[in-house]
Design a protein around this nucleic acid. Structure first.
Length: 151
DNA sequence: AGCAGGTTTAGCG
DNA sequence: CGCTAAACCTGCT
């Protein structure tokens, strides 16, 4: 059975929905919705809250990546290693996992079901910010937050 | 098979 | 500089 938590992020001014059972399945942004009821039961919810509140740098929750291709999992794995406040380009990430294919990397990241916890917002283009499945404005916010947060 | 993608780089004005 | 165009490889029809 799968459960759904909901937390509110002041920074992003939107709710975040967290889907999980024993492992974490997905996180989604919910924009333009007022007055949702927050519900925090799983670790990921508390960790996310800590992230927004105190700049928590790493997440311990177990993520479920079944259903994704091996290549995609490799990309997401590598993405998880990017430390708080750091960024890397699509092509560098590609090189780290032993391929030249930066476009495929972008494609794989677009498939990331678990935003923020798998920090695909830290992967940027060489000349510019690149894209983000949750919306580039959110990506920009997150990057700025990690760069300037006074923790 | 074909096509588009969260890119990149070179080449030209 | 800014724009266009071709190339890289993966995953969805």
């Amino acid at each position: 059975m799968t459960n759904v938590d909901i937390i509110f992020s002041q920074l992003l001014n939107c709710y975040i929905e967290i889907e999980y059972d024993v492992k974490l399945h997905a996180t989604r942004f919910i924009r333009n919705k007022e007055n949702l009821k927050e519900k925090k039961t799983c670790d990921a919810s508390f960790e996310l809250e800590e992230y927004f509140k105190n700049g928590k740098t790493d997440f311990s929750c177990d993520v479920d990546l079944t259903g994704l291709s091996e290549f995609t999992r490799k990309v997401l794995d590598e993405t998880r290693k990017i430390r708080y406040g750091r960024t890397i380009t699509y092509s560098d990430l590609a090189r780290n996992i032993g391929t030249k294919n930066y476009r495929a990397v972008g494609r794989a990241l677009g498939n990331n079901p678990i935003l923020i916890i798998i920090p695909c917002h830290r992967v940027i283009a060489k000349n510019g910010i690149g894209g983000y499945s949750g919306g580039v404005d959110i990506k920009a916010r997150l990057l700025e937050f990690e760069r300037e947060a006074p923790f």
